[in-house]
Every structure is written in C-alpha cells, then in structure tokens.
Design a protein around this nucleic acid. Structure first.
Lengths: 231, 231
DNA sequence: TATTTCAGTAAACAGTGTTTGCTTTTTGAA
DNA sequence: TTCAAAAAGCAAACACTGTTTACTGAAATA
C-alpha cells in the first residue's frame, strides 16, 4: 500500500516508503513525520529550488528543531536525493503501449519525447537538480544515490526499446545503431528540457525571429528528431 | 592590447579587461591584482567547480584577506559571472568561414556542432555553470550578467546564420523554419554536452549495449542532427 | 516496575558570503 | 614639499549555512 501525498499543484507524488498495517504504532508515527518533512521539502523545492531549501527553514515550517531532521535523514543530500528520485520515477511511468501500426507508432514515438520534455518542464527545479553534480557509475557511490542512476538507466532502456520497436516495425532506418540513436534522442530531449527551464523565454522571446509557443517548439523538436530516424 | 593569462592546461583565456599603456600606475597595478584573483578563481573553478570556490580559499591562495576581494568585485556572483562570460566568449570564436561548396558545407555544419560540444567538454564545470540559474531577458537584470545573455544570443545567431546558409545553398530543406531548426540544433548540442559532463561514462559504460568513444558519440550526434536538415 | 531506547531540543562547531571600522599607504593638488 | 583626500588592505563581526553534541523527557521493552 502506497502513501499518496497531496502536494501544492496537481502533482500527487507516490513515495516509495510503505506504510503498512502491521507496523508498530511507533514506526507508523515515525513514517508519518518523515513524510511531513518530505512534503515540506517538496513544496519549497518546487517553488524555489535547492537554493531556497535549508534545514532550518524546513524545521521552521514543520515546527521542529533543525537537529530533529537528522533523526530521519543522515544529511540534506540524502533528503534531496529522495525528492529527485521520486520525481524522476514519476517521469517514467507513462502507461502507454507501443502500437504495431506504423502510422500510430510515429505518433507514439513523438509522444514519448514530448512527454519527457513536458514532465521535466512541469517541475524544472527537480529536473535540473536530477542532473546536477557529476555521477560516476561503479566508482563513486557516495556522490549519488544508487536509485538515481538506475532510474536514468530505466529511462534509457525504455527509450532504446522504443527505437528498436521502430526498427523492427520497418519504420526506422534498418541500419540504425539503436544505441547511438537512443543516446542522441535522450541528449536532445534533455537539452531542450533544460534550456527551456533555464531560459523561460527561449521559445517565445529569444532574440530576433518569430515567437513560438512552448508547445510548438516541443512538438517541432520531437518531430524533427523522430523524422531523422525514419527510413 | 589584451592580457593573455596562461592557465593550467592549454586554455589561454583572453580576458576582456584591457591593460592600456596610458593607464595610471595605480590603475595598472589594480588591474594586475584583479587579474590575479580571476586567475586563481579560474584554476579552482576548472578543477572543482563552483562548489569548491570560496572567497576565503581564494584569499588564501593569493595571500590577501577575504575582505580585500570585495574591493575588486561586488560579490562572488559577479566574479563567477566574469569567469563564465570569458569562457562562453571563448567557445564562440571559431575563426572558420562557411564554405560555398555543398560537400564542404556539410562537413562545416557538422564541425560547428562538434566544436561547440567539444569546447563545452573541455571545461565541463564552466559550461554547466553558464547555464545554471534561470535567466530572464528584459525582466530581471539583477539575476544574470547582461553580457551573459548576449553571448548566448550571439551563439544562437551564429547557429542560425549557419542554418540559413545551408538553406540558401540548397543543401537543407527549402521549407525549413530556420528559427525552429536552430533552436532544436542548439538544444540538442547543449543536451549532449551537459549529459556527457554530468555522466562521464555516458558514451562508454552506460548500461548494456556497445561501448562508444566520446568522439564517436559526438560525431554521430552531429551527423544525425545535420542529416535531419538536409533535403 | 525498571531499564533501555528513542524523539526532540538547545547550543555549539565549522564553514560560508558579506559588511564594518580602522590603519596604512598612495595619490593629486596647493 | 606639504597636506587633505582617496584608496588598499586587514581583523573582526554579522548573519547565514549544514551538522554534531550533550542533554532532556517520554515512550517501548524486559
């Protein structure tokens, strides 16, 4: 049984912590407080990003002392990592199956990229934070949460299986290096998501040239990328 | 006359400060100290990024007191902005003319993207920092340096004129929206640069699939993007 | 019931960016 | 040359961080 915690705007973040029936009352209470901390952090983080999030402010908002938070999290980093993980996991769960029909598949492929970019733009601070700091893979486990990496691996695997699907259907180029192509697709979607987070007026007001809506840019970008793969 | 300051690896950063002959000795001395601070900051920043750069450490390295630095820079932000600007300006000056020949132009276009990505990867901390924090354009001038924006505008203009060149030569699709296309190109190059900075093993060790060299991935990415524009 | 464990706090520690007074040096004009 | 003004530099303080320590008081366990 998952705890669904309601946050400010529409996001209902499903947190991995499980509140079970057969937990001791103490443990259940503990999980509740832990969740309160995470909720407050989520609220602040969404509005002001990592910069606005301080342990003291968090403690203030939930009427605890700063030290108390360290009974629930070893460090601020661990707390933030949990926020990022929950966010990134949420980006991925898009319960849509790849269709076999060629015309529909094209739309589906574009939809995958658009979905990723739009989800990222819904909470730009989260998305940017999820990719801040360098992360080694086997080498330095102290620098990044393990699940953080595996969520990104999952993202890549999903993208790659989409590309392979397109190839096997005969829609994409048959001599495609699906791994290189997937890396390009991901990097390109990632790039647009980040650049639009950092420069909110990138679509509309960026120097000379016509104004585009955010939606227009995202669709055009996705279409451009997918078209580059088609035979 | 520019001051060319030699830094650790091969980067010789041309700083915009001008040390002129007809400056008063006081002013010349002042500029020299200012440059010493920037050099030390550059050294630390390149190795450890913004996180490792503190005013007190900087002061230690150049044998001044922390307060002294504020005689030369209003804030740490201003100092870092100057580093970023110098770096970003350096990315842009690639003294190569667009060729008229169609075959050569294709190579030239790929080269533009590859150059941008490689320059970014040379100093990943600088590049990531150059795009950290959100920047409004007319609205909030206190949040970002003016030149910072204009350098990015310059980058976009250069890219856009390249795309227009390709169209006018008849190499790229004639019905191309050159502005949308340029935004896609930039976002895509930006994305690969950032993702490779943050995950050094993205090219080689990223989950299953064949290992690619960084060079291979960059070339394939650039080729993929440019091919998407060709008629 | 006695003991141990754990939640929570206040205060301190080490670090940060930045400001304030103050001294010393340097500059520019009388 | 002399003298006021300006600037350079510093030590110390201020307000803020994340984090740890020592200490309560209240539950949970034996």
């Amino acid at each position: 049984m998952y705890t669904i915690c309601r946050l400010s705007p529409p996001w209902n973040v499903r947190v991995t912590e499980i509140i079970d029936e057969d937990m001791s009352p103490a443990e259940r209470r503990r999980q509740k407080v832990r969740q309160t901390i995470l909720d407050a952090a989520e609220r602040v983080f969404a509005e002001e990003g990592e910069a606005g999030l301080s342990i003291r402010r968090l403690a203030d908002e939930i009427d605890y002392s700063p030290g108390a938070i360290y009974k629930y999290f070893d460090s601020k980093q661990e707390l933030v990592d949990e926020l990022k993980e929950a966010f990134f996991a949420q980006i991925l769960d898009r319960g849509e199956q790849a269709p076999n029909d060629r015309a529909l598949f094209l739309e589906y492929a574009r939809g995958c990229l658009e979905h990723y970019i739009r989800k990222a733009l819904e909470r730009p601070h989260h998305y940017a934070a999820a990719f801040s700091g360098r992360m080694e893979f086997e080498a330095q486990p102290e620098d990044c949460a393990v699940s953080d990496v595996s969520n990104k691996k999952r993202a890549f695997e999903m993208l790659h299986s989409m590309v392979e699907g397109g190839v096997s259907i005969g829609l994409f180029k048959q001599d495609l290096d699906t791994y290189l192509a997937s890396k390009s697709l991901w990097a390109s979607s990632h790039g647009l998501a980040l650049i639009m987070s950092h420069m909110p007026q990138f679509a509309s007001d960026f120097i000379t040239g016509p104004r585009h809506s955010e939606d227009q840019l995202i669709r055009s970008h996705a279409a451009f990328l997918i078209e580059g793969l088609t035979a």
